[in-house]
Design a protein around this nucleic acid. Structure first.
Lengths: 335, 335
DNA sequence: TTGTATGCGTTATCAT
DNA sequence: ATGATAACGCATACAA
């Protein structure tokens, strides 16, 4: 591995000149720049990451902390992770993957060792130990999701409350009166996962203002779970004509169950899905009306908050939900 | 940030002693070890990653190169990524995420800069430029998947040929005669993606020995794709009673289509799925008979080959397929 | 516009 | 069993 010093010798300049050619932090005459560049190419020089990190006390690495739970939908995480990685590259940074089985200790480790310049937290909980570690440590961080107290932090998330409200509105506009919210598994609510609670709150509030009768049913990620929930809904409230589903894994089973129970979508039952657009919504029949979670945008903005032009400005960014009307929603029957 | 030198002063020992307490590379009297440890705790010392990497020329980081294509099933990658990360941690390593949009250059970057000690390649193609970069560079690497020439490389993969054969066997054992293989999208085969070709080859060969009539149909990841393929299969060969599906995203649509076209599973049509077990197979109705891709095991072994006790031994590890018989396969009708 | 010299925090070699 | 100290490769403040 060639070193900067060797490049300098080869080009007949001083080491600092080579360094400045690389960093562009001071002006270099064209002639020497060319010579240096030639030497770099000739020797196949690559700056040593460790040395660079030591000298500049910047690792050019951001840590991405991902949950390893299986009860939240995986493609969203993957999309976020990829968006984070590609965006970080645009700022000359790499991404270190930290799984949450290390807990807060993982965050302490990467922050304390200077391994990462900044940390991105996914799947933030309302009271999150990792956030405390970051605060104490003074590490630059950005969160995807909202903790109970976001003071001094950079956070970005979908405005799930608005998403819930939008779903209710859409069904109300179509003349539905009895609707049901099929949510995540109970554990998610028990952990007080922010996004789930906010969606539900926004949904319920809007149902009230619009005069809709609504029920909430958590749903385990299994065929039985879906079957049980669905049966219960139509037993308790046979006149239910609208479903809001925030449980992407259950979309396919749900559609199958509705079909085999003889309820047509959207003629008899309308469905609005809150979740990832990509894999599921467009592969179903009928195609789903959705309020997509903008995974890519979340990842991008998280990095932007960390490394972008006005990094350091703490604050909460709530992305407005969008409604993609497809084929799974229609006017309520008998209207 | 406390430094090693400060810890040394605080403990009244020399810097090297502290270093050796940390690394355990030479014997230390209990008394000083305790004093040093106390100083470490008192100052909240964490070794600086950059300095450590510079001095030891080991970053304790492995790079994981993930594809960003959307036509291969995402959960498998996520499972592999997580397995890689947790296993790497057991060896005291972290994982750097590299997306394949950087191409071979990304590999060159992390290897050349010493950012990573080793590289794990996912979604390896038969002729893979990245492999050449690694070879030239002499970087330690392990591949998940098989290149055309694996000489000198550590590779691990599911034995997809055996998997294809196992699927054929299972259907043959059940008395099926006309069967169809629903594969990945055409692009995957055009790129000569190893696993797809090997599965198909193993399948076709075994069909021949067992006297089965078989057709292969690539399938795009869309509802229309599934519908078209299915229609074509039953038009060309109305007596088809067995389906082998290696396209996890299409499982749900396929089941839906079969149901709405009045073909019952498994009474009239049997289905064997080759793909991830977790999310899809157990959420369907009926539950799918599968030959699972052991994502976790693949990730674990890839790390093991890189960092484990006998790392450096190049060689190809083909994991034997397993067959999970569930509810989607039954004896051929009329037997 | 370019060169010189020092320091970054560890590891590891050589002493003792 | 422990201490001194020279690398490690680069960035940057200071000179010229």
């Amino acid at each position: 591995m060639a070193t900067l010093a060797e490049v300098a010798k080869h080009a007949g300049v001083s080491p600092s000149t080579v360094s400045y050619v690389l960093s562009g932090k001071r002006s270099i005459s064209d002639s020497t720049r060319v010579r240096v560049q030639a030497a770099i190419d000739a020797l196949g020089y690559h700056p040593n990451a460790g040395a660079r990190a030591l000298a500049s006390s910047k690792s050019h690495i951001v840590a991405l902390v991902v949950p390893l739970r299986t009860d939240l939908y995986v493609p969203v995480m993957m999309q976020i992770a990829i968006a984070v990685t590609t965006t970080a590259r645009q700022y000359g940074h790499d991404v270190l993957l930290i799984t949450n089985d290390e807990g807060p200790e993982g965050v302490r480790r990467v922050a304390g060792s200077g391994l990462a310049d900044g940390v991105i937290l996914m799947d933030v909980e309302l009271e999150d130990e990792r956030v405390e570690v970051l605060r104490r440590h003074g590490t630059r961080a950005s969160l995807i999701g909202l903790p109970a107290d976001p003071a001094g932090l950079s956070c970005v998330d979908l405005d799930f409350a608005a998403a819930g409200a939008t779903a209710a509105d859409h069904l109300a506009d179509l003349g539905h009166h009895e609707i049901a919210f099929i949510g995540q598994s109970e554990g998610v609510y028990r952990r007080h996962t922010g996004f789930a609670e906010r969606t539900l709150a926004g949904f319920q509030e809007r149902c009230q203002t619009r005069g809709l009768r609504a029920v909430h049913r958590p749903c385990d990620a299994s065929f039985e779970g879906a079957a049980g929930v669905l049966a219960r809904i139509f037993e308790d409230r046979p006149d239910t004509t609208g479903l809001v589903v925030q449980n992407e894994a259950m979309i396919a089973p749900l559609l199958g169950l509705l079909r085999s129970s003889g309820r047509t979508v959207p003629e008899e039952v309308s469905i609005v899905a809150i979740g990832p657009d990509e894999p599921v919504a467009v592969q179903t029949s009928p195609r789903l009306t959705t309020i997509p979670v903008p995974a890519q945008e979340l990842g991008r903005q998280a990095v932007e908050m960390l490394l972008g032009p006005d990094a350091g400005n703490s604050g909460v960014t709530l992305l407005p939900p969008t409604l993609s009307v497809r084929e799974s929603t229609a006017p309520a029957p008998g209207r």
